[in-house]
């Protein structure tokens, strides 16, 4: 019945929102107090050797991924998937979820993102040597911010990104598809409930391909970096980062 469906959507939305808030790493309120890096601090980042800045970013991404794994574990049904599929989904989707979550720690007014204790503009990441990737990531965060999503909407969108049934190497595609459909229905229900414009769900769908391009670009940049500095990656990068992104 429609009432039962509405109740089920509300219930799922509630569980996923709770999981999101419990694992979101930073609360918006605590970030409001934070300032931007001063020029001399920006220069310190810019003067870091490329390897050191890559290592720092790999560490930050790995920290964030641990929260995403915790989020995944609390999504209804995720832990009922076989472990192969849990790993496939996290391997393909954890960076995408971080990019979605980034809109929570992004200030579109001055194009800065929370990084290593303060708000940082794209110039902070100059020594990575990937200006195009950084510019694309900032553009993506800006466009996500312009949708003014509420936490509940970010939570459900993140969950649906993670539960993408079209990832390669899934054993039980059908089960993932069912979970994704349930999450997407709950997202649509929440958008309707919040009186969002009709096009928002479709706009979010278009973000999925942007996320995939960003992750592909990250892999490409990592391969190029690793070709020049194989020992840095091997000895200094966090093991979890290597498992996810730098498998041989």
């Amino acid at each position: 019945s429609p009432t039962a469906t509405t109740a089920a959507h509300d219930h799922l939305a509630q569980i996923i929102s709770k999981s999101h808030l419990e694992t979101c790493q930073y609360l918006r309120e605590e970030l409001q107090e934070m300032s931007c890096f001063l020029q001399e601090e920006v220069e310190k980042f810019q003067n870091k050797p490329q390897e050191a800045m890559w290592q720092l970013c790999a560490v930050k991404i790995t920290d964030a991924i641990q929260y995403v794994v915790e989020f995944a574990k609390r999504i209804d049904g995720f832990m009922n998937l076989c472990q192969n599929d849990q790993i496939v989904l996290l391997k393909a989707g954890s960076l995408e979820v971080i990019l979605v979550r980034m809109c929570r720690v992004f200030d579109p007014q001055n194009n800065t993102v929370y990084f290593d204790g303060k708000f940082a503009g794209p110039d902070v990441f100059k020594s990575l040597g990937c200006d195009d990737l950084i510019a694309s990531v900032f553009d993506f965060a800006k466009s996500m911010c312009s949708l003014h999503l509420e936490e509940e909407e970010i939570a459900l969108f993140s969950a649906s990104v993670l539960l993408s049934a079209d990832r390669s190497w899934l054993r039980d595609k059908l089960q993932v598809e069912r979970l994704q459909q349930k999450t997407e229905s709950a997202l649509q229900h929440v958008l309707q409930k919040n009186h969002r414009d009709d096009g928002l769900f479709e706009k979010l769908r278009t973000k999925v391909s942007a996320l995939r391009s960003l992750c592909a670009l990250h892999s490409q940049k990592l391969s190029a970096f690793r070709a020049v500095y194989p020992d840095t990656v091997r000895t200094l990068f966090p093991p979890l980062y290597k498992e996810l992104f730098a498998a041989d």
Binding site: Q66, V69, E70, M79, I87, L240, E243
Partner: peptide, 16 residues
């Protein structure tokens, strides 16, 4: 699998 040792561990740890 050995290839995803840490991810395995994280998934198996009980939710804190």
């Amino acid at each position: 699998k050995e290839k995803h040792k840490i991810l395995h561990q994280l998934l198996q740890n009980s939710t804190s």
